[in-house]
Design a protein around this nucleic acid. Structure first.
Length: 196
DNA sequence: ATGAGGATTCCA
DNA sequence: GGAATCCTCATC
């Protein structure tokens, strides 16, 4: 299947990109060890006016600098000192939007993912949650800033059709500090067991 | 130099 | 319900 180009992520509507990522396949490949899954849950973070966004108020720091790159690069940062959270930067250079990948449904390399997650068997929820996604796919902050067309990480289109009315939206998770913006319906997910 | 807090997960 | 855990960032 076709890999999404960086230009896909440079479109102007981050909410639309976020929704379009549902049903696509996220793949990593380290030392010929391929792991992948279908994206089932995402959140959009929309630039300097979005209080929940790291770049709110045009905050340019060493960490957020990645978000200011042109769309189509990976933004990975450490959360709570433990979890590596994977985002794909969207929009144009100096317009810091991104989509957080919050959940996937495992496809390739299940054994590897279980091992990375310290799990014995494949139960529901093995890759639901942003920290779990990164752990299962072997993603760490050392990928921060690389292209989504890299040989180590990419996203493929699939045959999966996601009808608009199947996409559920809710407020984003863990952003209570964001005031009014905490209520924005910028989290998008597919119904449980959508593919099974 | 210091300290508060975080786009989470796991276990009791 | 609370701990784990450490980097980032604002402030001193």
């Amino acid at each position: 299947m076709n890999r999404l180009s960086q230009s896909f992520f440079q479109q102007p509507d981050t909410l639309q990109i976020a929704k379009d990522l549902l049903g696509k396949k996220l793949v990593t490949n380290f030392n010929h060890n391929i792991t992948s899954g279908i994206i089932t849950e995402v959140e959009a973070y929309c630039g300097i006016a979005d209080k929940a966004c790291h770049a709110f108020g045009d905050r340019r720091t060493k960490r957020t600098e990645t978000m200011y790159k042109a769309g189509g690069v990976v933004y990975v940062y450490l959360c709570y000192g433990i979890h590596h959270l994977l985002n794909i930067v969207t929009h144009q250079e100096n317009n810091p939007h991104a989509v957080l990948i919050r959940g996937i449904q495992p496809v390739d390399g299940v054994a590897t993912m279980l091992k990375r997650r310290n799990k014995k068997k494949l139960d529901k929820g093995i890759t639901i949650g942003p920290g779990k996604v990164s752990q299962a796919l072997g993603i760490t902050t050392n990928l921060d800033g690389i292209s989504i067309e890299d040989h180590r990480i990419w996203i493929e289109s699939t045959r999966i059709i996601v009808p608009k009315n199947k996409i559920k939206s809710t407020p984003r998770i863990g952003v209570d500090y964001a005031g009014e913006d905490a209520k924005l319906p910028y989290r998008f997910l597919l119904p449980d067991r959508y593919f099974s």
